[in-house]
Amino acid sequence: MKKDMTCVACPLGCQITVEIENDEVTAVTGNTCKRGDAYARTEVTNPVRSIHSTVKINGGEHPVVPCKTSGPIPKGAIFDVMKEINNVTVDAPVKIGQVFIENVCGTGVDIVATNNDNGK
């Protein structure tokens, strides 16, 4: 199986092709540096992303307060994590860094506030 991707290790944006056989990377082509090779291998074996969203807040300055994952989560868990984030309502006041959800979806990563809300 072949997988094409654009490298984001630097702004150059090389078009990389990864060949996979029996769940193992057999070739990486199109990259122009070592970082591209490493990026491509991670992308096909264990791709991770950070998520940024909002949660509902009671008594806040605005109806929602922004949040993020405290670290990267597996790419495949993005929509499960979003579901959890959208199930939560918090109370004002909120401080940056405050944990809204611990160990979201068993990823070992927390959902934390990214803005202060002192309430109305």
Partner: peptide, 25 residues
């Protein structure tokens, strides 16, 4: 910045990746 809740701010100035509201705060 208040509505730019994605991260990517501050890598040069603070040496860490912040969201817009965090950078502004």
């Amino acid at each position: 910045l208040e509505q730019c809740i994605h991260t990517g701010f501050g890598l040069h100035y603070f040496g860490e990746e912040l969201s817009g509201p965090e950078y502004a705060a």
